[in-house]
Design a binder for these strands. Structure first.
Lengths: 231, 231
DNA sequence: GCAATCATTTTTGTATGCAAAAATGGAATG
DNA sequence: CATTCCATTTTTGCATACAAAAATGATTGC
């Protein structure tokens, strides 16, 4: 018999641990969208999707509403929902906001990150360099994302992190469009180099500027790719 | 309490509106939360709330999921949902992010706003001044919010606007705590004065800085009020 | 008197049913 | 051949049903 826990009447958040079907459906559906398995503008047929995810329409519809709030799906009254289109204008908007969020995160991270945090990020950076050297795109992207994620985390602002995560989901959808040519790729890596440098020196202003530029460059690449697509 | 008829805003299905019940429920529920009618940490009883909003549990649950994504409600697995607590730490986080978003909006607005836009905002500002002069708090808040909203709108970035709206909802919940003392209120008005000035001169950098400070000052007030609350 | 236990009630989570709207397809018409 | 109906099918939106989990509260034992 374990010790009887003291009844914490008010602090409800501490016991929100159990996994709910609704949440797994949200995660699965978000993955399908972000990974591009459900392409932009795909109609979400409730019956089909529910069967695919092994659930009924009710939790699926709740998940769709949740993702609609994140902007990953669009609700069409009486006509269901579609995967949010990948419009160039939308991308432009997202990158601008994301730039501001990452800049803020960079500044906060320079103040709040521990030395261990920075060492971790640096390690991720070297992993990324290795994959860049070998021209391995997928692992490169993975480490790239992890670095950005870690910088956000080091900012120590959960609200910022959540907002960033939602915005970043949109960008992830477009990442495979970026078509990293050798020159562009090298440039992006160089920017990362500078970012790690600024973070190590805890130069918040510099890191902020670098992140903004980095995002702006990413946007250019995505825009070229999107603009080239016949729509 | 026996059947107390709740004034149904207009659940009329007469007009062939494209508006879904789900959306009206989202708006109604958000209003109840933002206006404080559903206090922080209130448990959302689905049966009771559905009846109150004149609907069934299904659309209500969808609305709850939607608002959970906005952060206004928290989901407790197998225990339903509660109105998100108003914790000081959360407020601090929100204000930091909101500061970055408004700063960005200010910069963009200085670039993109038309002269007519600026004239409109200036007009709102004078209305606000009038209500400040008369010490009318509620109308003051209303115009204050409208001014901030208009600046966001002038940025011409719908993604930014939506993100701001969600963040701002949290702040609105705390606004009645701010307890504007004469001195503080005067200071806030003075800051607005400067903001209008910077916008008119289209001095983006200045407006950005002013908005950041303005938000930081608001935070101080809210924090004092929240910190003073025995919780 | 108090805590623990367990039956009962309540509430949540999911599935299903049903009506209305939209999509589909095919015949009739120009 | 294209277009416009209209009947049929499909899909969505909402309500309800039902099982499982949690809250409640009465009872028992100490």
């Amino acid at each position: 018999m374990p010790d009887t826990p003291i009844p914490q009447a008010s602090n409800v958040t501490s016991l929100a641990e159990r996994r709910l079907l609704h949440e797994t459906v949200v995660d699965q559906l978000r993955d399908l969208i972000v990974q591009g398995e459900l392409a932009p503008e795909t109609k979400l047929n409730e019956r089909v999707l529910a069967e695919r995810l092994g659930t009924s329409r009710t939790p699926l519809r709740e998940a769709i509403k949740f993702l609609a709030s994140e902007g990953l799906v669009e609700l069409l009254p009486n006509r269901g929902a579609v995967v949010a289109p990948l419009k160039p204008e939308k991308m432009q908007e997202v990158f601008v906001v994301l730039g501001a969020l990452e800049a803020l995160a960079g500044e906060l991270a320079c103040r709040n990150a521990s030395e261990a945090d920075i060492a971790d990020i640096r390690a991720l950076h070297y992993h990324m360099l290795a994959h860049h050297a070998r021209g391995e795109l997928a692992p490169y992207f993975r480490y790239n994302q992890q670095i950005h994620q870690r910088i956000i985390d080091c900012a120590g602002n959960a609200t910022l992190a959540q907002s960033w995560r939602a915005m970043n989901a949109h960008v992830k959808r477009a990442r495979y469009l970026a078509n990293l040519s050798g020159e562009r790729w090298d440039k992006a890596v160089k920017e990362h180099e500078d970012m790690i440098d600024a973070l190590t020196r805890r130069d918040g202003a510099k890191l902020q500027a670098l992140l903004r530029d980095h995002l702006a460059n990413k946007l250019v690449m995505v825009m070229e790719a999107l603009g080239g697509r016949p729509k």
